[in-house]
Deep mutational scan, measured.
Amino acid sequence: TEVDLHLGDITIKLKDVSEEIVKRAKELFKNGWSAEFVKKWIEEAVK
């Protein structure tokens, strides 16, 4: 499945990412993480 994760003005296309990771990524962004950091976190999380 593909998900578009909207973080501010940046959209990250996610492939084969669990709902849990998407939820967590949104929380991290809301908590002040930059979109770049969230993207890196996701990449690490799906390895």
Rank of each mutant, 00 (worst) to 15 (best):
I42E: 00
E44T: 09
K23A: 15
D4P: 04
E43K: 08
K47R: 14
K47Q: 12
E36S: 10
K30P: 01
E27I: 11
D4M: 12
E36Y: 08
A45R: 09
T1L: 14
V17M: 04
G32Y: 02
E36M: 12
I12N: 03
H6V: 15
S18M: 06
E36N: 07
H6K: 13
F37V: 08
E43S: 08
F37Y: 15
E27W: 15
K26S: 09
L14H: 02
N31G: 09
E44P: 00
N31M: 15
L14K: 01
F37A: 14
V22W: 12
H6R: 11
F29G: 01
E20H: 11
L5S: 02
I12M: 08
W41Q: 00
E27D: 08
S34P: 09
V3Y: 12
A45C: 12
V46N: 05
V22E: 03
A35Y: 09
L5C: 04
K15T: 14
E36L: 09
K23T: 15
E44L: 11
S18R: 06
H6C: 07
R24F: 15
E43C: 10
K47D: 07
K13R: 12
E44H: 13
S18L: 08
G8H: 04
K26W: 15
V22P: 01
A45P: 01
T11Y: 06
S18A: 12
V38R: 00
K39G: 06
I42K: 00
V17E: 01
L5M: 06
L7D: 02
I12W: 02
V3H: 11
L7Y: 04
L7I: 07
T11M: 06
I42P: 00
E27H: 08
L5F: 06
L28F: 07
E44A: 09
W33L: 10
N31T: 07
D4H: 15
W41K: 00
K40E: 10
I42F: 03
S18W: 07
K39N: 04
E44M: 11
G8K: 04
D16R: 06
K30T: 12
T11V: 15
F37R: 15
E19N: 09
K47V: 11
K40S: 08
T1S: 12
K15N: 10
L5V: 07
D9Q: 08
E44F: 15
W41R: 00
E2K: 06
S34K: 05
A35F: 10
V46M: 14
W33G: 04
